[in-house]
Amino acid sequence: MSNIDNKTVSGFGYQWKTYKQDKLVEEEYDDIFEGYFKIFPFEKLNDDSVGFDLGCGSGRWAEGIAPKVGKLYCIDPSIDALNVAKNKLSHFNNVEFLNNGVDEIKLEDNSMDFGYSLGVLHHIPDTTKGIKNCVDKLKSGGFFLIYLYYSLDNKPFWYKALWKASNIVRMIISKMPNRLKLLVTKVIALLVYLPLARTSLLLEKLGLSVDNFPLSAYRDKSFYTMKTDSFDRFSTRLEHRFSKVEIHEMMGKAGLKDIVFNDAVPYWVAVGRK
């Protein structure tokens, strides 16, 4: 059985055609990139390093990684997403594109120095198996960075209750046609993301903690990022969430050790060594 949900893949193809991430200013891109790659062992990369970006989407993360390595494989099951990535990364001569799902990666086992998959493997039927498929491609000593949606294991009960309510909304919106999804998620970005994010920014400037304030992670982000992530959050049909303990366990079962988590937003980003 294929470890892929075709309707989810189609939705992401539409997302990256719509939000190509070409409107992000450099400062915001650098800030978001740092959030995901803070624990990435860049010191182990050089001009001979070969690795992969599993679920590359628009190619936004590859744009920051490709200049630092010898070869980068951008892998995505959506041809629409790959076409966006190809256009974004056309000025690099060390990037190759593979139209593969996680269970059919056309790379040799034990051949990669590194790999990463950010915001992808929680959108497939079997996340544990997907992680193992990625780790199989690494050489001994190679490292893998992953970001998975978290189960709010570090949040209070009322925060989790709010999320459960929002998840009901997601299950409704995710079944809509793409154009209607786009419209509805833009409205959510305008009426929910924007006011909550800017309110948390104001509260922070007043010296208050906003760690548990809903959508505080967007307090310094652009409306473009809010629209992108609103669509990402509410239009996806298949989604799993995991605790920090569960993520550590899955990574260990896949053959990773020396696992390190970034204990800051976004939760949870982790890296391990094969």
Rank of each mutant, 00 (worst) to 15 (best):
S200L: 08
S111W: 09
P67L: 08
E239P: 02
F37E: 13
K17H: 10
L238M: 05
G142D: 13
Y19S: 01
N167Y: 15
Q15K: 15
Y149S: 11
S243W: 07
F231Y: 15
R241Y: 09
W163E: 07
S78E: 12
N3A: 13
D136R: 15
L202C: 10
D211M: 08
G11E: 08
A62S: 15
V269Y: 06
S2G: 04
K68E: 14
I173L: 11
F261H: 04
A165K: 06
F144D: 02
D258G: 02
I188F: 00
G115C: 13
L208W: 12
L82T: 07
Y36R: 04
Y224V: 05
L138P: 03
M251P: 04
L201A: 14
V210I: 14
K88F: 10
P214C: 01
E96I: 07
N6A: 14
K68Q: 14
D53W: 01
K253N: 13
V84M: 04
D53F: 07
H123L: 15
I168S: 09
H123R: 08
L121T: 09
L208P: 02
M250V: 01
K155G: 00
I168E: 10
K274G: 02
R219S: 14
F143S: 11
N87Y: 13
V135K: 06
W163V: 05
T127I: 08
D76M: 10
F223C: 00
R273N: 13
I124F: 05
D113G: 06
G272E: 02
T185W: 06
L208G: 04
E108T: 05
V271D: 10
S90C: 11
L208I: 11
P77R: 10
L206S: 09
R198S: 04
E239S: 10
Y73Q: 07
I172V: 15
V192P: 02
A66N: 07
F97R: 09
S117H: 05
S49F: 03
Y224T: 04
D103Y: 05
E63I: 00
S235I: 10
G142E: 06
Q15E: 12
N87V: 10
V210W: 08
L98C: 12
H123F: 05
M251K: 02
V9Q: 13
V192N: 00
K181S: 01
D229H: 03
L121S: 04
K17A: 09
A165M: 03
E249C: 06
V169A: 14
L215C: 03
N178Q: 13
F12H: 03
Y147N: 12
P177W: 11
L54S: 10
E104K: 09
P177G: 14
D232A: 04
Y116A: 03
N133H: 15
V265D: 14
I173W: 10
N93K: 12
D76W: 11
L182Y: 03
F242R: 03
I65V: 15
I188H: 00
A254I: 02
